[in-house]
């Protein structure tokens, strides 16, 4: 049995997450079991692979390992601030996080437009 950690979503509840497991996937399972009782809506889930940005969150406390994430959704400043895509991090201990979905029209989100090219 691999190491297991507790992921707390501020104000919503908590989830049990394996060391090699994507945090977002653990949260999906927890919501399925009714363990994110106070979450007012369905957990935002998209690609689960760090590309679409829908699972953007801020880690308030705890260590984690990260996969590559789209810079359209997490800039290097964001990254230094603990902003992550929850689907692209794996816990190294207990974690506390806050969901921080970006809204349309905010700067970072439009940044990828210039990447179009050929």
């Amino acid at each position: 049995m691999s190491e297991r950690y507790t992921i707390t979503v501020e104000g919503s509840g908590s989830a049990d997450c394996g060391a090699g497991e994507r945090v977002l996937v653990a949260l999906e399972r927890a919501q399925g079991f009714g363990r994110l009782k106070n979450m007012p809506c369905r957990l935002p889930v998209g690609c689960r692979r760090g590309g679409c940005g829908i699972c953007r969150a801020r880690v308030i406390e705890g260590d984690y390992r990260r996969d590559v994430m789209s810079r359209a959704h997490v800039t290097s400043d964001d990254e230094a601030d603990g902003v992550v895509l929850a689907c692209a991090i794996y816990p190294l201990g207990d974690l506390t996080l806050r969901l921080e979905p970006k809204r349309l029209g905010k700067n970072g989100r439009m940044a990828e437009m210039s990447q179009g090219g050929k």
């Binding site: 760090g50 590309g51 590559v68 810079r71 359209a72 990828e112 990447q115 090219g117 050929k118």
Partner: peptide, 9 residues
């Protein structure tokens, strides 16, 4: 390969 996913053309 790029630092964002998505559509080029």
């Amino acid at each position: 390969r790029a630092d964002t996913a998505g559509y080029d053309l």
